[in-house]
Amino acid sequence: MKALKIKIHWPSIVSRGLLFSLIWWFLTDGAAASWWIGVPAVLLAATVSTVLVPPVPLAWFELLRFVLFFLTRSLLGGVDVARRAFQPNMPINPDLVEYSLQLPPGLPQVFMANIVSLLPGTLCASLHQNVLKVHVLDKQTDFLTELKTVEQHVARILNLSLHNP
């Protein structure tokens, strides 16, 4: 077994510390006295987290762009499914499709699988050996473009390049 190599990575401790402080502030409704516990807790959490979850190089601007994309698409996803549920003739035409991922295994693929279920008309049904089985609500929709767009977004956030088959 390989020993856990502990390497202090200051930039990510600082950025995670800020993020955790923000969360602490939310959780405690900004109670000033709570910082006596909050500051040590945040410092501890930030330090330990950088060891347990090593820093990934995130493209922050891309992340912001993705959040906007995700929010609008998931809103549209809700509208789309609501429309189909309300209509008396229930216009659905489901199918199960396979999508070969170009993202590397691990975090990028899991991240993608989690997002797919919240986008319009797609539901991630399994992830096995780089193949994502996607249940689509209406096979006439352009779900392939949607999946490709998400994959490119994920790749850009994590600074990865997709190898084209």
């Binding site: 998931s74 809700g78 609501a82 539901l123 609500l137």
Partner: peptide, 14 residues
Amino acid sequence: YTRLHALTKADNVG
């Protein structure tokens, strides 16, 4: 599967 579509997306937007 289709029920999951409905529940997941609509309730999250709601």
